[in-house]
Nucleic acid binder design. Structure first.
Lengths: 344, 344
DNA sequence: ATAATTTGCGCAATCGATGTCGGGAACGTT
DNA sequence: AACGTTCCCGACATCGATTGCGCAAATTAT
């Protein structure tokens, strides 16, 4: 099954390529009978228009680009699933690029996807990205862009995010209500939108319950596999150490759990632990991990829908808005109160 | 920063596009001085050749296509990481497609990547794929192809796989040595290469220790979230139920763990459990899960290296071979013997 | 019957880059 | 002085598809 071109059809039927092209696109100025012949021939040869040629001509490529920090990450891989499902249903292909949390690679990815003429771009920013000029250029070229999860306030585009504030508030409130007073917050890079929102939720909950906000209980960073442990040590050496940990990502939740267990700190007796994650095994961990679930698949779906809506209605601009997807607090053993533990 | 073409440079310098093209590619028949001018101008305008135009011309696109069943899967997402790392270092971009375990979508993905003129293809077959005609066509078009993990015996191409036989043998042997005699094997679709190899390893270990191979202890399938439970029930109702479970995938291992716990079957007292997985949280589960680790990242790296080697040495055919990456048995609590459990 | 439309289709340009061919200039050779 | 070589470079076709323009034939209007 070689690949046939519009020329093959033209030759076969003894007509010009222009006529074939127009017939296939259903132009009104082609004889219905000719159209029928062309369609039939195209069908017979299993003709597929060459996307490269189409792209070169500047028309739609029916492909959307997805640029995100890391695929090997629960949240993002689920988000991709959501994106793919919607894109496939609406007839788009998905081309995925990883920035590997590098600004430079993110810029290269954007260039790549632009020159590969994607119809639109779906992005979650790398943790190194603070300058968004490369994205402004995308907008200037009139290529639809939707940000999800890690977004930038500087860009006037549609954004799809979890309710980070609400989720962090709920998690913190839950910890407070279960008797915790010194809540450490382990989070990622401070300049990311999600970090700030979660931190704000955390602070708001503390405030509501009249607890002091202690900057020394907050830790930012890209914690490698062996960096969480020392940080836990440091925190636990305080004269008044934390009695709970609230972590802001999958990786941190797991790293923290591991570090606490290695140090023989019992959860939830010694410290309480709650994550902000999508781990589907959270329930099977020891102890089962309380968590704020971000609906990753749904975020991906909504983002893809918005993007394709924009692509297909390019003339009238669609309203630009920030869609907030609710998060859900799931309480498991890792945040039980001491009395609950005893009563087991 | 708009995007400049070879024409812009030509106009700027008052020379022809051919000269610019040749100068940029360092052709010997261009005056060094002219070359310098062109290079300088290209630099100044931040010229980037348009990959679409290049692809249309049929030359290298410096992109490799990756087609695999599911991104939201530990094994595959790590494999992608490995692939990406190598590809990036060697100057290639990676375009990822998901077949979603569907034969039809896999075929569509192959067509897409062909018409997008990737320089080579890296694939892991969907579970529905038994006919590999679409891949034979890829080979017929002389596009380099490397299969990894889920491969097909019918295709004469380079393959990169984990040592599935060895891993399954080691896991089974370990179970036997720790006193288990009725070992159930939960695995995926029987026609997949990895399934057969693992099953063979399992059988070989049973044989070595003179244990009977009981077909009724084997279960094949694409187990959905709630399908593992009933299967466990069925097995445990046998007059001589299994005293160990050996599962062949991440999903099955977790599903099985969950099902066993829900049914109040204690691990490892009642039954032993070992998986064939890449879960980085295996150690943190309750109980910590013994497992055969497949080096997913390494598989991806090796596959990408082989592919790019083939792409870059297209003239002389490289030897076709099957690379087997060693697996590693990691013993944790889920497969302890009863005496070990007591001694805790 | 002649002019004015409409219908159906082909020619050629275009997108960005490459590659084949061939030509003019400068040089060297008899 | 006439011819052959090199050296540089430009014109043009090409990849696959779309599209503006124009043209002939068929149809309708006058």
């Amino acid at each position: 099954m070689e690949t046939f071109t519009i020329k093959d059809i033209a030759r076969e039927l003894g007509i010009s390529t222009s006529t074939v092209s127009r017939a296939l696109r259903g132009s009104y100025e082609i004889n219905p009978e000719t159209k029928r012949l062309v369609m039939e021939c195209a069908e017979r040869l299993n003709y597929r228009p060459n996307p490269i040629a189409l792209s070169l001509k500047g028309s739609a490529s029916r492909a959307i680009g997805v640029i995100l920090p890391q695929i090997a990450n629960y949240f993002f891989s689920q988000a991709i699933n959501g994106i793919e499902a919607i894109a496939y249903n609406r007839g788009y292909h998905v081309i995925i690029f990883q920035s590997q949390e590098s600004y430079e690679r993110e810029v290269a990815n954007v260039q790549q996807s632009m020159s590969r003429k994607v119809d639109g771009l779906l992005m979650s920013l790398s943790s190194e990205t603070s300058d968004v000029a490369h994205l402004q250029e995308v907008l200037d070229k009139n290529v639809p862009l939707v940000l999800f999860d890690r977004v930038s306030a500087e860009l006037n585009v549609t954004k799809v995010v979890a309710d980070n504030f609400g989720g962090a508030f709920a998690a913190t409130e839950h910890l407070i209500q279960s008797g915790r007073k010194r809540i450490a917050h382990l989070t990622i890079q401070p300049w990311l939108s999600i970090t700030q929102e979660r931190l704000a939720g955390y602070r708001a909950a503390l405030e509501k319950y009249g607890l002091e906000f202690d900057e020394s209980l907050i830790r930012y960073g890209t914690f490698g596999p062996d960096e969480v442990g020392p940080m836990v040590d440091e925190l636990m050496r305080y004269s008044s150490p934390p009695d709970a940990f609230f972590t802001a990502s999958d990786r941190l939740a797991v790293g923290c759990l591991q570090a606490l267990r290695q140090r023989n700190l019992h959860i939830p007796e010694d410290v309480s632990l709650i994550g902000f994650t999508n781990l589907n095994v959270a329930e099977l961990l020891a102890p089962p991990l309380s968590t704020v679930v971000q609906p990753a698949t749904e975020i991906g779906q909504v983002a893809a829908e918005r993007l394709i809506d924009q692509i297909e209605r390019k003339h009238r601009a669609l309203p630009i808005e920030t869609v907030k997807i609710p998060t859900e607090l799931i309480v498991r053993s890792s945040t039980m109160t001491s009395s609950e533990v005893v009563s087991l």
